[in-house]
Simulated scan of single mutants.
Amino acid sequence: MVKIKKVYDKHYTVINNSVLNDVSLKCEDKGLFAYLWSQADEWDFYAKEVAKHSADSEDKIYKILRKLEEHGYLLRERQRNSKGQLKANKWYLSETPKQKWINIFKKRSTNKKPIRQNPKQVKPDLEKPNMEKPDLTSTNCNKYLSKQVKNLNKSLSKEERERDANVIEILLNYLNHCAEEWHHVPIMFSQSEVNKLIKAVHGKDTRGLKEAAEKTIVYGEQYPQGYLLSCIKNLPEEVVNEK
């Protein structure tokens, strides 16, 4: 038998044992909850910043948050102003599971849109998109793509224009998928906004597009179209290997 003696120190956190004794949660779930609970009220949450203080990736952090939400310890809501316009997210933490929160999570999950007929296109590989024979599912996010090539820089070849347009179409499909995962309303893009994205992506390293889409959903609350455009413009230039 091993006995554990507690050595108390300053800067401790008082937490209800309910979440710590919940057998439906993994140790990693309880650990992240304890870390969030230790922060000050109205603390600005950034998954990237939390990941810096642990060995977990941002994707792992998001998965654990979803687990806490599923079990009633976390509630994520979108606030609206007096005009009904969406504002920033508001998150609530509870030391004990809230059945009301669990019901809200189940309702949101049940009301999610049906999976597209071609599930392989839901999470496309943005690093190596198929430029020759794209098989993309049409969504509300990319309904303006039929005319986007006309206004592009004429100095680009037809192949380059089609490649950039295809990359953006894949990106918007993935962006729409992320919105569904986070219970956000679909993000609509006008024809001019799509054209700007296509122009901005030319010559950029496409390996960063997946992260750009995810950041847009989490951080681009007020103007997601402009936030995504800024992310693309800030991507590093594509490195061309000369033989």
Rank of each mutant, 00 (worst) to 15 (best):
236 P>V: 03
123 K>Y: 11
128 K>W: 14
186 P>G: 08
132 E>A: 11
83 K>H: 08
221 E>C: 14
45 F>H: 03
241 N>F: 08
183 H>G: 07
109 S>N: 11
165 A>I: 09
92 Y>N: 05
86 L>P: 15
126 L>K: 01
204 K>N: 05
28 E>H: 09
35 Y>F: 08
7 V>K: 11
33 F>S: 01
107 K>L: 13
163 R>T: 06
98 K>G: 10
65 L>N: 07
1 M>L: 11
79 Q>G: 04
30 K>G: 07
216 T>S: 02
112 K>L: 15
106 K>L: 11
22 D>V: 01
211 E>T: 11
171 L>N: 00
241 N>Y: 06
204 K>I: 04
173 N>K: 01
218 V>I: 12
108 R>G: 15
54 S>A: 06
10 K>G: 12
189 F>T: 13
165 A>G: 03
171 L>P: 00
94 S>H: 06
191 Q>G: 08
53 H>S: 10
198 I>L: 12
226 G>A: 06
105 F>E: 03
20 L>H: 02
112 K>P: 04
154 K>Y: 03
77 E>R: 10
103 N>A: 11
31 G>N: 15
133 K>D: 02
172 L>S: 00
208 G>K: 06
105 F>H: 07
117 Q>F: 15
63 K>A: 14
68 L>I: 00
51 A>H: 07
161 R>F: 04
182 W>Y: 14
174 Y>V: 02
106 K>R: 10
30 K>Y: 05
15 I>D: 05
76 R>Q: 07
120 K>D: 11
217 I>R: 00
95 E>P: 04
232 I>Q: 05
121 Q>R: 05
169 E>T: 07
183 H>S: 12
40 A>W: 14
229 L>E: 05
160 E>I: 03
14 V>N: 08
215 K>A: 13
131 M>Q: 15
237 E>H: 15
73 Y>I: 01
158 K>S: 09
124 P>D: 02
77 E>N: 10
106 K>E: 09
48 K>M: 12
144 Y>C: 12
19 V>E: 03
141 C>S: 09
150 K>V: 14
99 Q>V: 07
73 Y>V: 00
96 T>D: 13
78 R>P: 03
92 Y>P: 01
42 E>S: 13
39 Q>S: 06
81 N>I: 07
48 K>I: 07
30 K>N: 06
225 Q>G: 05
199 K>P: 07
18 S>N: 11
176 N>F: 03
239 V>P: 14
38 S>Y: 03
166 N>I: 07
56 D>Q: 11
179 A>N: 04
185 V>H: 12
227 Y>A: 08
198 I>P: 04
14 V>F: 12
28 E>V: 11
62 Y>K: 08
84 G>K: 04
19 V>W: 02
239 V>I: 09
130 N>A: 02
230 S>A: 13
224 P>Y: 02
72 G>S: 00
158 K>T: 08
195 N>G: 13
197 L>I: 03
217 I>W: 03
124 P>G: 01
240 V>H: 12
210 K>D: 06
192 S>D: 09
176 N>H: 06
63 K>C: 15
9 D>Y: 14
240 V>M: 13
172 L>A: 00
130 N>S: 01
235 L>P: 05
51 A>E: 08
119 P>D: 06
158 K>G: 12
34 A>P: 00
184 H>L: 10
226 G>I: 09
52 K>M: 09
222 Q>M: 15
15 I>M: 02
233 K>R: 13
42 E>D: 09
161 R>P: 03
160 E>T: 02
17 N>G: 05
217 I>A: 02
138 S>H: 15
33 F>V: 01
101 W>I: 04
